[in-house]
């Protein structure tokens, strides 16, 4: 594997803050949103993945080192070589975890999640962990996990929706999104025009005068 510090273009002695800054700069540059409809989109996505992996590797290494677990990540690297067998195993576990979350058994889901070794924790892991924490009401950590999931897999609509759901209150509330819900006269006219155009495309007509 390439040196994560090289990918981010920082020296191994750089501070956490410097690494964060370098990561943010690169992430902004290569974010998939900037490459929609671009022929190089897949290249940008590949680059983005590398940057994310490098950032996560560095942060994990540093967190482990400061916790006194520096030997831990080393001993685990051999384990991840298990190949597809371990993938199938985690896939089943994730399914079970999703069932537990759906039946509001967050405590059990959390135990299963924590059993998955750190180097096998992918975007889905972070997404599910975010879900579990959200159910517990631990919103600070929940948001962090959801953001990590979106960073690791920026194209996943499920993770994006999970993060967005944190930002919104009830749709039934009279105060939230008052403008978004309203349907003005202008909206109705525009809607009718579009409906008319669609009908005409299909050979029919909704509004005979236009």
């Amino acid at each position: 594997m390439t040196d994560p510090y090289k990918v981010l273009g920082v020296s191994p002695t750089a501070s956490d803050e410097e690494i964060k800054q370098a990561y943010r700069k690169l992430a902004k540059q290569y974010h998939p949103d900037n490459y929609v409809n671009n022929p190089l989109a897949d290249l940008a996505a590949q680059k983005m993945k590398e940057i994310n992996e490098a950032y996560d590797t560095i942060m994990r290494q540093r967190a482990n080192a400061s916790n006194g677990y520096s030997g831990y990540s080393g001993s685990n690297t051999g384990y991840s070589g298990g190949g597809s067998g371990s993938d199938a195993y985690t896939g089943n576990v994730y399914l079970r975890i999703r069932q537990l979350i759906a039946t509001r058994r967050a405590a059990e889901a959390e135990i299963l999640l924590l059993r998955i070794p750190e180097n096998q924790r992918n975007a889905e892991w972070h997404f599910l962990m975010g879900h579990v924490l959200y159910q517990k009401g631990w919103l600070f950590d929940a948001r962090n996990e959801m953001e990590t999931a979106c960073r690791l897999d920026p194209y996943n609509a499920e993770y994006r929706a999970g993060l967005d759901s944190l930002n919104t209150g009830s749709a039934y509330s009279p105060y939230s999104g008052r403008q978004a819900q309203s349907c003005s006269g202008c909206d109705i006219c525009a809607g009718l025009c579009i409906a008319d155009t669609c009908c005409e495309c299909m050979g029919g007509d909704l509004i005979s005068c236009c």
């Binding site: 959200y134 009401g137 919103l139 600070f140 929940a142 948001r143 759901s165 944190l166 930002n167 919104t168 209150g169 009830s170 749709a171 039934y172 509330s173 939230s176």
Partner: peptide
Amino acid sequence: TIIDSLNAFSSVYGLHT
């Protein structure tokens, strides 16, 4: 994170209505 709690309150409370 503080506003997240208000959002969570509102979205759960909405179920009552």
